[in-house]
Simulated assay, not measured.
Amino acid sequence: MELTLEAAVLHVLDPGADLPVLSQTLLTDEDALHYLGGLAAKAWNSEEAKTCSFTSESPLLAHLGELDQAFLSVTADLAQSWFDVLRENPSIPAADAAFLLLNIDGNDYFAGLKLNYKTGYAHFFDMGTGDAVTGITRQDFLLPGASGKADEAFFVDLASQQVRVLEKKYEIDGRKQPYLARRVLCVKPGMSPKEKLAAIRDIAVEVNQQFYGSTGVDEPELAAAVCEEFREFRSASSQPGAPAQPAPVAELCDKLYGNLPHAREAFAQALAEREIEMDEPLPMPAAAVRRMEKQSLRSAGGVEIKVPVSVYRDENAIEFIRNADGTTNLLIKNILL
């Protein structure tokens, strides 16, 4: 990923004050810009970031074309809205809000990072009396370290107006819920890659139980199919030429239900109900795929075995024997003692 930071401003959102502190100048310090660029890169790469879309009620939508000339005023208005939400909901931590104009892989974005305050300690010294006096003082308004991350963030593609949002849940109106997408940006939340992959896994399990009981596609088979697609995508990405695109969800469906037409139909219908299209790219966040590479199998007696999905379909390594009562026996071959 290539990220270039073109402009940045920092506003202070401390709900303990009556008003936010809105900067009237851009950040110019190179260390500060490098720090914000690093935090932006981490937020952009988060597998929990959701793809969202603007609604007609979003006040930001009308001002995207003004960012070049009115960056400070547009960000000040957005910071004020963010501050108002914090004042109304004490569970949301105080923070600084950094707003950025940046370019990621050739595309221009308007971004915001919420930098929650951290508590830390620093030394101090006083030479006022002639004697060196040193001590330790508590600091309650420290920003995340360079190796840390922004707790919440958003990225608006200035060409497509697609919005990418990373948000957290806080106690609001009596229940834990996210707020950044709906209450600050006024965008319609979508699903993060992590949530979408989890939904696809849940749908496959539901389809299996509905149509085929324990004789159809099970979770390890799904994991094996996802890992295969991921390896193919990574292999294609390493080749010279145009960047590879993840395979569509339909290809995963073919791997799972190629010879099971009723299950294919149910799988597609369940995806549509959760607003996941068959022709959209299969979400394959690397961390989530790594967690799927070994599947845990448990017996009724409590024995647990971790099976790498790389050998799941290798009959020379293991064999699943389906029993008439719906249970399955696992035969492990070529054991080295």
Rank of each mutant, 00 (worst) to 15 (best):
D202T: 12
F154P: 01
A199C: 04
L197G: 03
L166Q: 05
L158N: 05
I172C: 03
P193K: 11
A153E: 05
K188E: 10
P178D: 08
R201L: 13
M191E: 08
I200A: 09
S160E: 14
D157M: 00
R175N: 07
V184K: 14
A198G: 10
R175P: 01
M191C: 02
R164A: 04
R183C: 00
K168V: 07
Q177W: 08
R183A: 10
D202W: 06
A199Q: 09
G174H: 08
K168E: 15
L158I: 11
P178L: 00
A181T: 00
R182Y: 02
F154M: 01
Y179M: 06
R201K: 12
K196R: 09
R182K: 06
V156C: 00
S160M: 02
S160G: 04
R201T: 11
C186N: 10
S160Y: 03
K196T: 12
V163I: 08
G174C: 08
D157R: 01
E152T: 14
P189C: 06
V187F: 03
V156H: 02
D173F: 07
V165W: 00
K168C: 04
Q162A: 03
R182N: 10
K196Q: 15
V156L: 06
L185M: 06
A198S: 10
S160V: 05
I200E: 03
E171M: 15
G190W: 10
D202K: 10
P178T: 07
K169T: 12
K168P: 01
V187C: 06
Q161E: 14
S160R: 09
K188W: 02
F155E: 13
E152C: 05
S160F: 02
A153V: 07
V205E: 09
K196I: 14
E152I: 08
D173K: 04
A204V: 11
V165H: 06
R182H: 13
K188L: 04
Y170H: 15
D173M: 05
G190D: 10
V205F: 03
Q162K: 12
V205D: 15
R201I: 13
R183Y: 11
S192Y: 09
V187K: 02
K188G: 01
D173E: 14
P178V: 08
F155Q: 09
V165M: 03
K169Y: 01
L197Q: 09
V205Q: 12
A199T: 12
G174T: 13
E195V: 01
L180Q: 11
R201D: 11
G174A: 14
I172K: 05
V187P: 07
E171W: 10
F154Y: 06
R182A: 11
L197F: 08
M191F: 00
K168T: 11
G190E: 15
K176R: 13
G190A: 14
L180V: 14
A159G: 00
L197E: 01
D157N: 11
M191G: 01
E152K: 11
L197K: 07
A199K: 12
Q162F: 06
G174S: 03
E171Y: 15
K169P: 04
F154E: 05
D157I: 00
V187G: 07
D202A: 15
E171K: 11
A181N: 02
V163G: 10
S192G: 07
R183W: 02
Q161W: 09
A159K: 07
E152Q: 15
A181W: 01
K188C: 02
L158M: 13
